[in-house]
């Protein structure tokens, strides 16, 4: 659903844009999984791109938002593959319930 290179870009973005307020471990802990287990990857993308960064939502490019999502998927145990996650990819319909849970 996403590649290692994309997840690496997402990690860099996370550090630059998100770590001011968030720890990476928050994106995969029990509370995160509780909140997102009934939703899809696309829902998470909509949420993040619609509400983050908190004081300037929508200020990253669509590509940057999916890169961050790829990083979060990696944190939650989703395997990397050969195709990047794209803003309109079929992978967005995938349930977010972590494969590890």
């Amino acid at each position: 659903m996403f590649t290692q290179a994309q997840s690496d870009r997402g990690r860099q973005l996370f550090r630059d844009e998100c770590s001011e307020c968030h720890y990476s471990s928050e994106m995969r802990d029990n509370a995160f999984q509780y909140e997102w287990e009934r939703r899809t990857v696309g829902d998470l993308l909509d949420h993040v791109s619609g509400s983050m960064p908190d004081d300037d939502p929508g200020s990253l490019t669509p590509q940057q938002y999916v890169d961050v999502i790829a990083y979060i998927l990696g944190l939650n145990g989703f395997p990397t593959g050969t195709v990047e996650l794209a803003p309109d990819a079929p992978g967005l319909a995938t349930p977010l319930k972590s494969p590890g849970s």
Binding site: R11, S19, Y23, S24
Partner: peptide, 8 residues
Amino acid sequence: PEEEFEED
């Protein structure tokens, strides 16, 4: 809690 916040 036993767990801690972590950075990757």
